[in-house]
Simulated scan of single mutants.
Amino acid sequence: MSDNFLDMLVFVRVVQAGSLSGAARELNFSLTVISRKLSRLEERLGVRLINRTTRSLALTNEGARFYDRCVQILAEIDDAETEASSGRDTATGILKVTSTFAFGIRRIAPLLSQFQEMNPGLLVHLDTDDSLVNIVEGGYDLAIRFGALADSSLVARQIAPNRRVICAAPAYLDRRGRPERIEDLIRHEVIAFGEPPNNNWTFADGRSVNVMGRLTTNNGELAHRWALSGSGLVLKSIWDVCDDIESGKLEIVLPEVHLAAAPIHVVFPHSRLAAAKVRLCIEFLASRLKSSHASLQF
């Protein structure tokens, strides 16, 4: 196993240095040793990882995929060593997080900034994307997800409730009327979003309605802005629209009707389960979000 690890390390250093000689200098090995270890690794895997000429190196498709996995593995080993030396109650190393765009900017980003300040040895990277990214391939330590989760090899923990509401700008409702029943929604302009846009709205009592609209997008923040401009109804998390509801820019439609729950989860690979930075971040986010949720009552 130790030889396998060293072969992986040599491979990664060769790719990063751009040459066998560069890796040899960095690792203080002879060029012959570097070449032999790389050849042994390819022989053991049964694939060619790097196309080599006298002047250049180029990763094969298999090599590119293997390189990404090796980088993740080596990073996890570095994290483990750092945590072992600094204690299980210290968040250190690099914490890579992904979240939806609006929630990531409005809620997660400020909390991660606070968490980093509490843990000076931690480096935090946040990606915001409304599409469902592959956590493992992206090398993420954790992801923030909404609603029901598909079965997978990932670990999921609920960290906060999430009430969803239908809302619209008062100007739109003054112009088109305020729905009094769920059935009234089909006569309204609806701004659907997601990948694909969600045109089926499901309620807590099991009823659902297929809504229609002339504006759709893959971006929840854009849907929010269209609603603010008076373009139609939108179904959003209370976390995203609470400030606009409180200020009167948006108005909740059918406030007595409850939509199907979509609680907030944090999702992470099994390999991150014991990492102090992941465990402490989850505890921090859950505590702060649950506290904030208590004030989101309208």
Score class of each variant (00 low, 15 high):
110 P>N: 05
204 A>L: 12
142 L>P: 06
152 S>Y: 01
132 L>W: 11
123 L>K: 01
191 I>K: 03
116 Q>S: 09
191 I>W: 04
212 M>V: 10
175 R>Q: 14
118 M>G: 01
141 D>K: 06
143 A>P: 03
185 L>A: 04
190 V>S: 11
184 D>Y: 03
209 V>E: 12
167 C>A: 15
174 D>I: 00
189 E>V: 02
213 G>C: 06
156 A>H: 14
161 P>M: 00
124 V>F: 09
202 T>A: 07
109 A>L: 13
149 L>H: 01
221 E>M: 06
116 Q>E: 14
222 L>M: 14
173 L>G: 02
168 A>E: 05
138 G>R: 00
147 G>H: 11
132 L>G: 06
154 L>F: 15
191 I>L: 05
133 V>I: 12
163 R>Y: 13
150 A>I: 02
115 F>A: 11
153 S>L: 15
215 L>R: 11
143 A>D: 00
158 Q>S: 00
111 L>Y: 09
108 I>E: 08
110 P>Y: 12
208 S>L: 05
207 R>F: 01
207 R>G: 01
222 L>D: 13
188 H>G: 02
178 R>A: 00
220 G>M: 12
188 H>R: 09
179 P>V: 07
191 I>E: 02
219 N>E: 11
210 N>I: 08
176 R>A: 15
169 A>R: 11
170 P>N: 05
195 E>D: 13
212 M>H: 15
170 P>T: 00
176 R>H: 11
146 F>V: 02
160 A>W: 04
162 N>D: 15
123 L>W: 00
188 H>V: 03
196 P>W: 14
124 V>N: 09
125 H>Q: 12
158 Q>E: 08
156 A>T: 12
187 R>V: 07
220 G>C: 10
115 F>Q: 10
127 D>I: 07
153 S>A: 15
148 A>L: 08
168 A>W: 08
110 P>I: 12
110 P>V: 13
126 L>M: 09
191 I>P: 00
201 W>K: 12
135 I>Y: 01
142 L>G: 04
123 L>D: 06
114 Q>C: 05
193 F>P: 12
169 A>T: 10
121 G>N: 06
162 N>H: 03
140 Y>K: 04
175 R>E: 06
113 S>F: 02
119 N>F: 15
121 G>Q: 05
221 E>K: 02
121 G>W: 05
218 N>M: 12
207 R>S: 05
189 E>G: 00
197 P>R: 12
117 E>N: 13
122 L>E: 07
199 N>L: 14
215 L>C: 06
210 N>Q: 04
123 L>I: 01
188 H>L: 06
161 P>T: 02
158 Q>P: 01
156 A>F: 10
142 L>Q: 01
202 T>S: 04
193 F>C: 08
191 I>H: 06
112 L>T: 00
193 F>M: 11
157 R>M: 03
205 D>P: 07
111 L>I: 08
114 Q>E: 15
208 S>R: 09
187 R>F: 09
125 H>D: 13
207 R>I: 02
210 N>M: 00
192 A>L: 10
170 P>L: 02
199 N>W: 14
166 I>E: 03
158 Q>H: 01
215 L>T: 14
138 G>K: 03
115 F>C: 10
214 R>D: 14
164 R>N: 07
131 S>T: 14
131 S>V: 06
160 A>Y: 04
131 S>H: 15
157 R>W: 01
174 D>T: 03
202 T>W: 03
141 D>T: 01
152 S>H: 05
143 A>C: 04
129 D>M: 09
188 H>Q: 07
148 A>K: 15
199 N>I: 11
163 R>K: 14
